[in-house]
Write a protein that binds this DNA or RNA. Structure first.
Lengths: 343, 343
DNA sequence: CTCACAGCTGCAAGCGCTTCCAAAGTACAC
DNA sequence: GTGTACTTTGGAAGCGCTTGCAGCTGTGAG
């Protein structure tokens, strides 16, 4: 393997100049730069990543911690992060901590602290204040997406607010028998999302003076198949059927629509369904939803991080609310005329 | 930041002994090891990744190149790879090369060659023989999944064979009007998959003496929504309708089922549908499919790689065929009785 | 009691770059 | 011609570890 020394010799320059020429930092005459570059090319030389990192202290590497890479939101975020990072010439080290706590802990300690990443993006992951301080102490900027990170920068959508408007959309259409499908308790643990959206739902219902019926509060695991099973219970049970379902995610909304179809219910004529996400499949099901641009959130997280790395000092713990977009399609409509007499 | 020197001082040992104690290599007395470890713990010290890598030449880092992390197959593979790698104490550097050729090229050169990964897993990515040789030359084992990698280890399923058995399944049920939904030409480029599966389909048809009608050869982009659109053309068009559809992926099979439902076609009574993958959603749609354990493929790739790194020498370019499993559910059945008289 | 041998330990030489510093070169105005 | 300021260059000291080598210690055999 050729080293920078070989390049220097071949180019008739010093090691120092070659280093500056190839890394693009410092002043180098055009002539020297070109010589260095062509010598490097001829030798098939590339700067050693580890040597550069060790000497300079910069890694050009960002650690991304996600609970899973298989679910819509996370893979969308990772796509956004990945593309932006690649453009900036940064590597992305993926920590998929699906298997729960002990793994998460070992990741934070053995990996992140080993000075091998310049910054950390934590997606839907609740870090303790101590963990965050630990990272910040060794000057590793950290930005969180969709999770509360005390003391760190975060990017998140207004979960409570959009849940409210989703519910309000149904209410304004005239629905009063509205069910809510939230996330299973397990998902409450790390990222508070299910509870927050549920709170928004309740607020909207209360504001409208509508009753929240416990039997219409169901939950699932955020997947289509999980929601499908749950919605079959809800819609096929012996209890009275709601005329609308607000699902805390698009995947769950889709599962609900599939279940409804199984029972011969037409959407939206017999049942209105609304979700949250902006899932690619929404179009196929005519799903009304609130689009949170997950890729965009990932991209923004990277931009924020890089700004903190290159730019001046800490931008502080900016808590950015990411904008969402209400997408009205054909899964919501006015409720069916009540077959039971009113009085 | 404390360095190994500080730990050595605190423990009353030499730097060398601390290094050996903490990295677990070489002979160290139990007493020294314990001292070193507690001193390190007290100082919150962790070995610097880059310094270790530079000095030792090993990175404990594997590069994973995927075309996307958002599609089922790839994210499944990444999950499998990630879990196995984490268990082995390796990092995973993700190269999501979605945006096409130029990015792919830069990744290979700027990233992979910078000696920063010990090995490479390429998923559904066709590397040229030169690229592979380049990697192997600097002793970077490489294993490919689902893509032909001349000269390197690969893991793949018998695409042609399983496509044949999928088609044969339909034929044996009595179908003769069988459509095939393959991947768009764009997907043929890197990984030959669509063509290979299509070839298997054709073989089965020919073997059975059945005609392959061009208007029943459609394609889509491997997504549910793409297949949905494509299947609407197929099923809603004015041409005669097939009684069965073999889709080259589960997502496309599901898109097809959704389109069929839109037209009031019952699956499997009016239309049989079969896919390939083992997608989690298969259960919801009762989809008959051939399960290729994508996570398992990812895990196997890692095991093979690590064996090559730790173990003796090159295991050579082993081309492993990964086993698949035929899963019969309820989306396939005997064809409907032909309404047109046979006379 | 001596010797061979094995287990531990420390010294010091790197690993392959980056970057501080000082020296040398260049340009321009006075 | 001289001074000033700036650009370009090379020498060399690290960055923070790993590891070959050699010395040192303790054990058991001869």
């Amino acid at each position: 393997m050729p080293g920078i020394k070989d390049v220097a010799e071949r180019a008739g320059l010093s090691i120092a100049t070659v280093s500056r020429a190839l890394s693009g930092k410092g002043n180098v005459s055009a002539r020297s730069r070109e010589r260095a570059q062509s010598a490097a090319a001829e030798l098939g030389f590339v700067l050693s990543y580890h040597a550069s990192s060790l000497a300079s202290g910069r890694n050009h590497n960002v650690g991304v911690v996600v609970p899973s890479v298989h679910r819509w939101f996370f893979s969308s975020v990772v796509e956004g992060v990945s593309a932006t990072l690649l453009d900036a010439g940064y590597d992305l080290t993926l920590y998929n901590v699906s298997e729960g706590q002990e793994r998460r802990h070992s990741v934070l300690n053995d990996f992140l602290l080993r000075k091998r990443v310049d910054a950390v993006i934590a997606v839907s992951l609740e870090l303790s204040e101590a963990e965050i301080q630990q990272l910040l102490a060794i000057h590793r900027p950290i930005v969180g997406i969709g999770g509360p990170l005390p003391g760190a920068s975060t990017i998140r959508i207004d979960d409570s607010g959009i849940a409210r408007s989703a519910a309000r959309h149904l209410i304004q259409l005239g629905h009063s028998k509205i069910a809510h499908m939230t996330g299973d308790a397990a998902y409450e643990q790390d990222f508070r999302l299910p509870g927050t959206r549920q709170a928004g739902f309740k607020k909207a219902m209360n504001d409208a003076g509508l009753a929240i019926r416990p039997e219409w509060q169901v939950s699932a695991d955020f997947t289509i198949q999980g929601a499908y099973a749950s919605a079959r219970q809800l819609l096929g049970g012996s209890v009275e059927r709601p005329t609308a379902v607000f699902a805390a995610s698009d995947e769950m909304a889709i599962g609900t629509i599939l279940a409804a179809r199984d029972f011969g219910l037409r959407v939206p004529d017999d049942l209105s369904v609304i979700g949250i996400d902006g899932h690619e499949l929404g179009g196929v099901f005519g799903l009304t939803t609130i689009d949170q641009d997950a890729r965009g959130q990932g991209a923004l997280a990277v931009r924020r991080l890089l700004a903190g790395l290159d730019g001046a000092g800490d931008t502080g713990a900016a808590d950015t609310e990411f904008p969402t977009r209400f997408v009205i399609r054909s899964s919501t409509a006015v409720p069916p005329v009540d077959t039971a007499p009113l009085h």
